[in-house]
């Protein structure tokens, strides 16, 4: 079971349907493997039900019920975006956005030990990527402009604040300067969603920075 979870506030926004973006996908991936957060989310859903029940009634147009009844025989909606198969080893919310599994992705190299793959989830708010850090290697020290959310997909990594394993959901804000290091035994693959591009500090960082855009 995961040790690091989304905050109550984020989980509530997610449950209330206010996160239909890359960050929402990440929360959904965490929920798939975290019973505890699924339970918390259910409390928030129930809250939504109570709020719906509390809604004042807004009058409906007269013909609406008739229109609706005439549509009951319609065949169900056509195929959906989400009918794409994808790789079953990935969490369901991500599957249709990833062509294959980690070993066959078109990774691009930031360096020999650090690779990235940009997910087609980007909007004007977030950038979404997979990072692959080779076993025992570390990312250059960096700070964040804005928030960076990380979900460990496979392997482990650690930084000054803790050790993280598969399923852990971590938020690093702009105050944190950290240097994630992958576990010694296997490569670490993370799903990252960030507000703004990473800013590396130090010489190596400056070298890398242009590639992070």
């Amino acid at each position: 079971m995961a040790n690091y979870h989304p905050s109550d506030e984020l989980l509530m926004e997610f449950t209330a349907g206010q996160k239909q973006d890359a960050l929402g996908i990440m929360v959904a991936c965490h929920l798939e493997s975290c019973l505890e957060c699924r339970k918390r989310s259910q409390v928030f859903e129930q809250l939504g039900g109570e709020i719906l029940g509390d809604s004042q009634e807004t009058p409906l147009s007269e013909g609406l019920l008739g229109k609706l009844l005439s549509r009951l025989g319609e065949s169900p909606a056509p195929a959906k975006e989400t009918d794409v198969q994808g790789d079953a080893r990935l969490p369901r919310p991500l599957r249709r956005f990833v062509p294959g599994y980690f070993d066959s992705l078109p990774w691009s190299g930031l360096s020999k030990n650090i690779k990235e793959f940009t997910l087609p989830l980007g909007d004007n708010r977030y950038v979404a990527k997979f990072y692959k850090i080779a076993a025992g290697k570390e990312l250059p020290v960096h700070t964040h402009e804005g928030n960076e959310f990380t979900l460990v997909m496979s392997g482990q990594f650690s930084d000054d604040a803790g050790d993280y394993k598969q399923g852990d959901f971590i938020l690093a804000d702009s105050d944190i300067k950290h240097q994630p290091r992958a576990g010694m035994n296997e490569d670490c693959i993370c799903f990252a969603v960030m507000d703004a591009p990473l800013k590396f500090t130090g010489f190596f960082g400056r070298m890398l920075n242009p590639f992070m855009r």
Partner: peptide, 16 residues
């Protein structure tokens, strides 16, 4: 409410 081409995420993704 999805309006732009960037709104790729649908509810079925979030709640399979």
């Amino acid at each position: 409410a999805r309006k732009t081409k960037y709104d790729v995420v649908v509810s079925d993704d979030l709640w399979p």
